[in-house]
């Protein structure tokens, strides 16, 4: 794949951050190490560094988002950038403006970086192919393709609690088929050298050929959780019932909901993660979500540092 060319500059440095696929271990490690250095910033009384002073970041959200959008905004502000956030699902596109015209118009406001979330897979690549030289594009989720900053904050969380990837068994549970987060996580875990990546889901939520990304498939939660060190739950969207992919939330919870009893099949020191927003009682039991093994809120905190890292590495080059 020529993905490297689009994301990296001639010196192998991150130019855009579109997906984990095609990146290598040194780049991912650099993101994690840079994020590490920013965690101290976010704990200070004055939570700002001047790395992106004078730069302008445009957040373009064509799909609704709360936490990703907010953490991108905070990350940019803590790097001293000016931030413009546009919720475009209700604005320009509904007036018939083409995506290319949207890019050109916002670019004319002298933007240094686009953060884009869009319902079409490949939309971040499309942006990166059409922005002016010197402008960076960060993918905040494109269709069912990738959500690389979410995956990197998950990797950051795993490294924080588990240190070494090489001994880890990681299970990703839920709607793999429609999840851009899962795809990015799978790529990241394999590049970082995790011992095993498992996906656990009913067959209707496992996309064809997913094993070619380097995962083992499980249709049974108890079996899939055995000897696992990291448990990643995915959000189950309600509309999946309407598409006849699942019979009911109740049956899904009965078979794939994470309860304490089932979590006990995993290693005793396993951590539980969720990219949010979670459906309590559908994919995860409240007591597990709020329990001692859950690191879900730390994920959100780390999300700011990771996004600061990626922003500083691309625009701050």
């Amino acid at each position: 794949m020529s993905k490297n060319n689009l994301q990296l500059d001639e010196n192998g440095k991150l130019k855009h951050f579109l997906g984990i696929e095609g990146l290598n271990l040194p780049v991912l490690t650099e993101i994690l190490d840079t994020a590490e250095s920013f965690t101290s910033v976010t704990e200070r009384t004055v939570k700002k560094v001047p790395i992106l002073r004078g730069k302008t970041v445009a957040n373009l959200f064509f799909e609704p988002s709360t936490r990703t959008r907010s953490t991108f905004e905070l990350a940019a502000q803590r790097l001293s950038a000016d931030v413009l956030t546009l919720n475009l699902n209700t604005s320009a596109t509904s007036k018939g403006e083409s995506l290319l015209d949207t890019i050109r118009n916002i670019e004319a406001m002298q933007i240094d970086m686009f953060v884009i979330r869009h319902q079409d897979s490949g939309s971040a690549h499309f942006f990166a192919q059409h922005v002016k030289p010197g402008v960076s594009v960060l993918n905040a989720g494109d269709g069912q393709h990738e959500h690389p900053t979410q995956a990197m904050l998950d990797m950051f969380t795993i490294r924080h609690f588990k240190k070494d990837f090489s001994q880890l068994r990681v299970a990703i549970i839920g709607d793999i088929a429609h999840s851009r987060v899962a795809r990015s996580q799978i790529h990241a875990l394999n590049i970082l050298g995790a011992a095993e990546v498992r996906v656990i889901a009913p067959k209707t939520l496992l996309p064809v050929g997913i094993e070619s990304l380097g995962v083992h498939l499980y249709n049974n939660l108890e079996q899939g959780l055995k000897d696992v060190d990291v448990v990643i739950m995915l959000r189950l969207q309600k509309e999946r019932m309407r598409g006849a992919l699942l019979p009911s939330e109740k049956e899904y919870f009965n078979l794939f909901g994470l309860t304490q009893e089932r979590l006990n099949c995993a290693n005793p020191d396993a951590i539980v993660m969720h990219p949010g927003p979670a459906n309590r009682g559908v994919e995860i039991e409240s007591s597990v979500m709020d329990g001692p093994q859950s690191v879900i809120l730390q994920q959100v905190t780390f999300g700011i540092a990771v996004r600061m890292a990626v922003m500083s590495m691309t625009v701050g080059r």
């Binding site: 897979s121 494109d142 069912q144 064809v208």
Partner: peptide
């Protein structure tokens, strides 16, 4: 086409 490529690219697939 529904297969490893559509899965990797996250594209709605045609079996």
């Amino acid at each position: 086409h529904e297969g490893a490529i559509s899965t990797r690219l996250g594209l709605p697939s045609i079996p």
